[in-house]
């Protein structure tokens, strides 16, 4: 009897120590799969906004992701003004307006292609479409392209820093945090 309870106690003690060990190692395993600090140390990308031409899509790179920059034409601006959903997505620098977005489809992450004649994007993966402000016009994508964190600095745009204009967009729910 005495022996049995002693074995029972040893079993429980072992179980408790092993349990703590198991939780600890699961935690270590989880953390080992996290992105490394070198990866996370957010890359900043600075764009000179004088370099872009109207209705000509340029793809920049930020944190390994493609960034679309599209300077809006006068006609686009007229259309955008008629549609506040479009207007809210644009970034104003000086007198010009820009669409600056992460060029990954909000459905499953393919890169949509831009058609300058139609002023729209088509994602070849599952047929999603976006207009010239990258607002979604055809499913499956659930929302327009996400806007990266940005800060306006004169005629420059710093990606990766959160300026007041970006924070406003985030609060208004115009973009999700990426």
């Amino acid at each position: 009897m005495k022996n049995n309870s002693r074995r029972g106690f040893m079993g429980k003690a072992f179980g408790a120590v092993a349990g703590i060990g198991a939780i600890g190692s699961l935690y270590a395993m989880k953390k080992s799969w996290d992105p490394l600090p070198s990866v996370k140390a957010a890359g900043f990308t600075t764009l000179n906004m004088d370099d872009y031409k109207e209705n000509e899509l340029v793809t920049e790179k930020w944190r390994g992701k493609p960034i679309f920059v599209l300077k809006q034409t006068k006609e686009m601006m007229e259309k955008a003004k008629a549609n506040p959903k479009d207007m809210d997505r644009l970034i104003q620098i000086g007198d010009s307006h820009f669409m600056v977005c992460v060029g990954l489809c909000t459905h499953l992450g393919c890169i949509p292609g831009y058609n300058p004649a139609e002023e729209s994007f088509l994602c070849a993966c599952h047929g999603g479409m976006y207009d010239f402000t990258a607002e979604v016009t055809k499913a499956p994508p659930p929302r327009g392209l996400d806007i990266p964190p940005f800060k306006i600095d004169g005629n420059k745009l710093v990606l990766g820093e959160e300026g007041p204009e970006y924070k406003k967009m985030l609060e208004a729910g115009i973009t999700l945090k990426v």
Binding site: K30, W33, D34, P35, V39, R63, G64, K65, V178
Partner: peptide
């Protein structure tokens, strides 16, 4: 659950990790 996706990848996009 973008955090989960980044955890699986070990990066923002598929890369070395």
């Amino acid at each position: 659950a973008d955090g989960l996706v980044e955890w699986i990848r070990g990066d923002y996009v598929p890369a070395q990790a």
